[in-house]
Design a protein around this nucleic acid. Sequence first.
DNA 1: TGTTGACTTTAACCTAACTGGAAAGTGTAT
DNA 2: ATACACTTTCCAGTTAGGTTAAAGTCAACA
Lengths: 266, 266
Amino acid sequence: MLSIGEFSKISNVTTKTLRYYDEISLIKPVHVKDNGYRYYDVEQLKVILLISKLKLYCFSLEEIAEVLNNPHDDVLLCSLIKQKQHAIQEKMNNYQYVLNQLGKDISNLERGIHIMSYLENIEVKLVEAGSKNILSIREKMSVDDYGKYMGKLFETVAKEKLTISGTPMSIYHDKEFNPESNDTEIAIPVKEAVKGTRELAGGLCAFGVLKGPYSELTSVYAKLEEWIEKEGYKIAAPPYEVYLTDPSTNTSPEEYVTEVYFPIKK
Amino acid sequence: MLSIGEFSKISNVTTKTLRYYDEISLIKPVHVKDNGYRYYDVEQLKVILLISKLKLYCFSLEEIAEVLNNPHDDVLLCSLIKQKQHAIQEKMNNYQYVLNQLGKDISNLERGIHIMSYLENIEVKLVEAGSKNILSIREKMSVDDYGKYMGKLFETVAKEKLTISGTPMSIYHDKEFNPESNDTEIAIPVKEAVKGTRELAGGLCAFGVLKGPYSELTSVYAKLEEWIEKEGYKIAAPPYEVYLTDPSTNTSPEEYVTEVYFPIKK
DNA sequence: TGTTGACTTTAACCTAACTGGAAAGTGTAT
DNA sequence: ATACACTTTCCAGTTAGGTTAAAGTCAACA
């Protein structure tokens, strides 16, 4: 039997953490004296070792508890580990992108170029957008669902034998930003007017183009808004984006070209 | 002037977050009506854009505040970004290691090998350790300081022209684990008995070897402790590690060889 | 002008995975 | 017997917000 201090020293887990794990029933000492002193069994070292391993793999304590409650379910464990493998791979990709961006900023700063000066290169134009007939789905969704709904639209196009007359778009109906559930309309311009299609009104628009990943679109929004206020216009309808790059051809996000339209009026 | 909803939509930051940033004075609306309604200026879009960028770079809100409070200090900004660059690189290295480990576990699990079965391959031996004369520094330190203190020891060796008689060691005097400040003694065996050296007592030890990164040492501790209890011994003195691999030759952590000794008695 | 519905406010509480500190009680070596 | 190292519980705090409720306000339409 090991006191909490001994158990802590051997397992490289602090006593604070061990008491917390006891509290949440992740690993309970095999014996508790009447005065509350905790005593662990050497066998429990294997358990705390597993906990530490899974924590390294970015498991939440809740997920670890699930694994510990099903000690012989190696299929469950394996599928959870594969999930984490995927998640960590995603994080690494993201960090790789961040390192690129950050490297550019460092070399700019060392040349005396201010970090936000890239905004000056975003051009805003006043355009007259033509009205379009679009096949669309409007739903509360997260950004991750765009692909799914886009797929549905293309299915409909195929089934109904519609004629595509432009690149995919999304229209933002929300009044504020919400990453989990935005009121978004995913659309493709088509020739035919059938069930599921509608007319997207044309008119005066503030217009900008982005070459780069979608995460940089907010800079274009900001520039458009700045321009709209400076020129004395007001936003007249939900803004929309037009995706000129087909994401199914595996172009890198750096090469994506996206148009942004803010319908406006005086 | 933009309402909080408009500002949120354009900047892709939720209204909740904006209110929180107001509360902590990270970015305050340029005007607040008597009824409490917040109104932002288009110019503030650049500020929130910068905040989002720095958040992507893993800045804490406190660090971002520091940057915003020194808007023209590009040197400060650049040095902070470089810090983050380093930190992110570290994280990626760590994730790379995790992906390797996790990949091994997946392929093991798919072959029906249990995730903790590697423990069975750790061998424990009973040895009689000889006593050693060591030059050492004992201090409360974190693992990150090991190199620093080791460097000091080597300086002393050089200055005093001592004769090294073994590979570096560390002795753990703490009664429990504490990552920030462990009562650790960093040591090198030397021939001469001078100021700063002492005798490390020999005697019966439970002994194990690890080939691999230091983070896996806990598995060896656990095995040793299990063996000690099973054989009816008790720990008699602080455990110590002997580093057979010279970390200054750039061996990969996978190749490190470390011995672990737990001095014991009946 | 009135009304409706969308927008905004504050306040209080919740999250994960702990950490820190205080005050009191306990174990063990001398 | 005493000292002191070890352990206990309890409470508050950390980051960066999210959730919910109840109340107040705005703007557009009739």
